[in-house]
Write a protein that binds this DNA or RNA. Structure first.
Length: 153
DNA sequence: GCCAACGTTGGC
DNA sequence: GCCAACGTTGGC
């Protein structure tokens, strides 16, 4: 089993939004970064656990847990001319962008703010805490995952 | 294949 | 709203 951190702007899509979706599931569409795509395409497995991170909000931080709920498949928004994620260069015969479905698992009792994460020695090498990190999907270690869960409960 | 220009991300 | 950091694009 692998562990991940996935960022979402809560104004656009929050953990509470995921919880309220039918089946508590949602396709993680709109990823237009190759590294993030490759993680979904090549490394994610159904059942992998996800730290659901709220970015671009006050305060930013981890709101709770989700899990990978499907194998990778082509991102339909890339072919939808009305979508803001439309990509004319993605050929339906050879899709450029893929996604996985993400399923709600739980909301933390205590939101874990970025500021608190920075103060946790266990998270010193965590990717999302490194300077200049912008990647919306990053792998995390089990130790990092456990430390954040502990802080959240 | 280099690299400047540009657009985006995301904390502050 | 600012701006540093980073990824992508496109001219050469």
């Amino acid at each position: 089993m692998n562990y991940w951190l996935m960022k979402s702007e809560p104004d656009v899509f929050s953990l509470a939004d995921l919880k309220s979706r039918p089946g508590r599931k949602e396709p993680w569409d709109g990823v237009r970064n190759y590294q993030a795509r490759n993680f979904m395409r090549d490394e994610m497995k159904v059942g992998d656990r996800i730290l659901f991170y709220h970015s671009n909000t006050k305060p930013p931080g981890v709101a709770g847990i989700a899990e990978v709920a499907s194998k990778p498949y082509p991102d339909p928004t890339a072919f939808d001319k009305k979508s803001k994620y439309y990509d004319a260069k993605s050929d339906p015969e050879n899709p450029r962008w893929v996604l996985v479905d993400v399923k709600y698992s739980k909301s933390f009792k205590h939101f874990v703010p970025l500021e608190a994460m920075k103060a946790m020695p266990e998270l010193a090498s965590m990717r999302v805490l490194q300077r200049g990190n912008r990647l919306s999907i990053t792998p995390v270690t089990q130790a990092e995952f456990d430390a954040i869960c502990q802080a959240g409960e």
